[in-house]
Amino acid sequence: MSFETVLASIFSAAFIASVLRVSTPIILAALGGLLSELAGVINIALEGIMLGAAFAGVMVSAFAPQWFPGLPVWVFPWIGVLAGIITGIILAWLLAFFHLELGADIILAALGINILAAGGTVFLMYSITGDKGSTSTLASPAIPNIVIPFVNNIPFVGTLLNAENLTGYNVFTYVALIMTVLITIFLYKMPLGAHLRAVGENPDAAASVGINVKRVRYYALLASGVLAALGGLNLSMGYLTIFQANMTAGRGFIALAVIYLGNRNPIGTVIAALIFGAATSLGAQLGTLSVPPQLIEMIPPAVTVIALVIYNLRKRAQIVANARKFQERAEKA
């Protein structure tokens, strides 16, 4: 394939569809991380929670037909999703308990959870299926796609709204987009959202007006567990229908970078996740050229690093601008 075809494929609806698909798990995890970060309890266990939930979803949905034989078939994947979410909540609760109740350092506790999830999933997978690499011996179901009706005959729009094969986007992609809107409203329009931001910025100030700092941080961490779990489930029950050892492959950490890149707000976070998704998709396109694959694999992390540098430069400029505004105000006063 020539370079021109790669270019052509980038400026196509199919490319946008692929970006959305790649970005979905990162958007979900990053929104969760954002809530915890804004509450002042940054959750770096996103990676482990994604992994744990991805595993629980596959296992439970694969065995659900044996456990609940009477239920209709469409229910089984959703039982898996429920199991994944519960796993996410348990792991996030562990982190919250260690940090908020026992006073453990949140970074160290989260590292522990990441290691626990990485080892624990492989251990359980081997114990149950006898395979250390993946659950390919199990038949696990997928969460369905949603196809928007009537648009498939319209050339560009059809691909845009229902992805390249016109088979629609996964439910998780829609969940990610809806969550972005809901979290934005929550953070900026609802009292609890304001309390969450206040707790993160100045916990003493929040406590002095009667806000229960610990409780708010519990909520934030548990919510981050749910969202990261959805991100993980998207990998094993949407993107693929299989669990592989370490299948998150650093997406939980990318999600953390994306939060700062997105200037610690939901819309920015989503845009940053899409930029990362675009870099990944581009890498996939370039894979068809004779570029060494190692270089291509470097693109997404390189884009992230460059973007973080730009973000920090911008932030410094912003601090200077704020300082200047402050000076001007003071001069006026």
Binding site: A194, H195, R197, A198, N202, A205, A206, S208, V209, I211
Partner: peptide, 16 residues
């Protein structure tokens, strides 16, 4: 005991 990124009005009513 103020939240720097909030407005004055938001700080006054914070918590209630």
């Amino acid at each position: 005991m103020l939240v720097p990124s909030f407005t004055i009005a938001q700080n006054v009513v914070l918590g209630s």
